[in-house]
Computed example of a mutant assay.
Amino acid sequence: MKHVNLRLPDDLHEQARAAAEADDRSLNSWLVSLVRRAVADGERRSVQEA
């Protein structure tokens, strides 16, 4: 597993933390799920454009 340092503006960090809490996840788990979804969506778009 890789570690990534991510710098977020304070307001965005608070919004992300609140969204993760509302989803009953840690902030890290919530961010991982968003990155997975974004990658999958990008792959689907690439296949559709081909």
Rank of each mutant, 00 (worst) to 15 (best):
K2C: 02
K2H: 05
V4C: 00
N5C: 00
N5V: 04
N5L: 05
L6N: 07
R7Y: 13
R7V: 11
R7L: 12
R7H: 11
L8S: 11
L8T: 15
P9A: 14
D10S: 09
D11Y: 01
H13V: 00
H13F: 09
H13G: 07
H13D: 04
E14R: 11
Q15F: 04
Q15E: 15
A16V: 10
R17H: 10
R17C: 05
R17N: 11
R17Q: 12
A18V: 06
A18Y: 04
A19E: 04
A19M: 05
A19H: 01
A19W: 00
A20L: 01
A20H: 01
A20R: 01
E21K: 12
A22H: 08
A22M: 06
A22C: 03
D23F: 06
D23A: 15
D24T: 00
D24H: 06
D24G: 04
D24F: 01
R25D: 14
R25Q: 15
S26E: 14
S26A: 12
L27G: 02
L27S: 03
L27P: 00
L27Q: 02
N28S: 14
L31R: 01
L31K: 02
L34N: 09
L34D: 06
L34P: 01
L34F: 07
L34V: 08
L34Y: 05
R36Y: 10
R36V: 09
R37G: 12
A38S: 12
A38V: 07
A38M: 05
V39I: 13
V39K: 04
A40I: 15
D41E: 15
D41I: 00
D41L: 10
G42Y: 09
G42P: 03
E43V: 05
E43I: 07
E43W: 02
R44Y: 06
R45S: 11
R45F: 07
R45T: 13
R45N: 09
S46V: 14
S46W: 11
V47M: 10
Q48E: 15
E49R: 15
E49V: 08
A50E: 05
A50F: 02
